[in-house]
Design a protein around this nucleic acid. Sequence first.
RNA 1: CGGGAUGUAGUUCAGUCCGGUUAGAAUGCCUGGUUUGGGACCAGGUGGUCGAAGGUUCGAAUCCUUUCAUCCCGACCA
Length: 501
Amino acid sequence: MHPEIDTDMAKELKDLTKRSENYSQWYNELVVKADLAEQAPVRGCMVIKPYGYAIWEKIQRTLDDKFKETGHVNAYFPLLIPKSYLSREAEHVEGFAKECAVVTHYRLKNAEDGSGVIVDPAAKLEEELIVRPTSETIIWATYKNWIKSYRDLPILCNQWANVMRWEMRPRLFLRTAEFLWQEGHTAHATREEAEQEARRMQQVYADFVEGYMAVPVVRGVKSETERFAGALDTYTIESMTQDGKALQCGTSHFLGQNFAKAFDVQFINKENKLEYVWATSWGVSTRLMGALIMAHSDDNGLVLPPKLAPIQVVIVPIYKNTDDLAQISAKVDILVEALKKKGISVKYDDADNKRPGFKFADYEVKGVPVRVALGMRDLEAGTCEIMRRDTLEKETVPFDGLEELIPNMLDDMQTAIFEKAKAWRDARMVEVNSYDEFKEKIEAGYFVLAHWDGTAETEAKIKEETKATIRCLPFGMKEEPGTDVYSGKPAARRVLFARSY
RNA sequence: CGGGAUGUAGUUCAGUCCGGUUAGAAUGCCUGGUUUGGGACCAGGUGGUCGAAGGUUCGAAUCCUUUCAUCCCGACCA
């Protein structure tokens, strides 16, 4: 940033919001300015700051409740996985091998030349340990001990944890080397039950992302090439960022008996016969925060849906001296209590070291849904100024009605934000019937519904030529046979293509 | 791992081509004062072994060599 405009942060953010020109830079700066996260002094990792973490905690708590409602329990498995575990499932190891951090030694010692500590060569591990990129292997090695009979099933475990994938190019929240997530791992006696579980969790995710994050998603199933390493089916929810790219928000995998066979997990069924267990796994990560930021943010900063905003209402007093402040505070305190009783998180920012204008801008960047400003003028008139973050509309209203007005406003916003994002997304999701049109729409940042002949060759060619991938075979679409836009061969249905993060 | 760029104050950068006083600016931070209805102003102050190592030179942020790190574009990906 140029020094002159560095002093004017509103203008600075405006400059950043040439989203079409350098969206990723805009996004990064937004994350930093909104005080959510920053790059860690460790390659590819991020520091999640308190305000950002507060949002993650809300996501975590809400989802955890949903998991409990659907009969799941939390457990915890080790961070380090013996290398041999990873090689048990062929496709799985192939999928993750390229991005694993490996522990080879267990001790350091002082260098003889006094230059600091070095790895003690004598402390080399017999078998290297892998920092988990995901926990299927160690969990299935454990489940083997837990499962003997059909009476032990189903096992419905979830784990909140961090994982590490040595990604080539990290981006805050979207793709960091270390990230926080939850991973559910379930074991079932029948194929039907496992498949149902995988679909059910996809639905839980979709409901959460749409209902709480206010981000519309496309539900569907992945093509074979895009499938999770080791899965028979990968169910996905895909959102759209404001630069028209797709973002995989959550996945739920039907693993069949692959992991049960790899880790020899068998049970005796009701017919007294040995059978391999059926499995699922499903997860969402801190990437959800990226989806949230990219879906709603505007030129003034973050826009948070009320259900996930750590601070839902901020009240800013405007005063000239301590007497004024005391009068304002007396009135505000009553409102704060009333709102808290309704379960609304409210912050009264009477800090004396920041001017009102600074606070206004600051809370806007942070995406606080509702702002109330109250000064001496208002005190005399019995009014206040109220602003909602999504529309930036300000109005002066009677102070006494706030207790009722604010909860309604928050509800309205939750719906309005979703509707706005959905209208935007829908307007950029089109059916195309020719390859020229396909390329044009992909280039313009659209979700493209096009016929696909079902072959991996066509899929690969399209990716090579347009950078677009099959995001999913969306659910709930009418069966409509046609011809593949690329190969011209017969195609059973349309699938969703887009460029993605 | 390929292509491109950059490392100078807490942060963003100027200075490097063409070597020459004590290395600058803005912002931040600290002190004092005036302010406070949309990111305040004035005055003073703090803050840098110029990424690291070696070389050339009377003299290096600047030239040369090596090295490390970061960022961007690809490949990979929740």
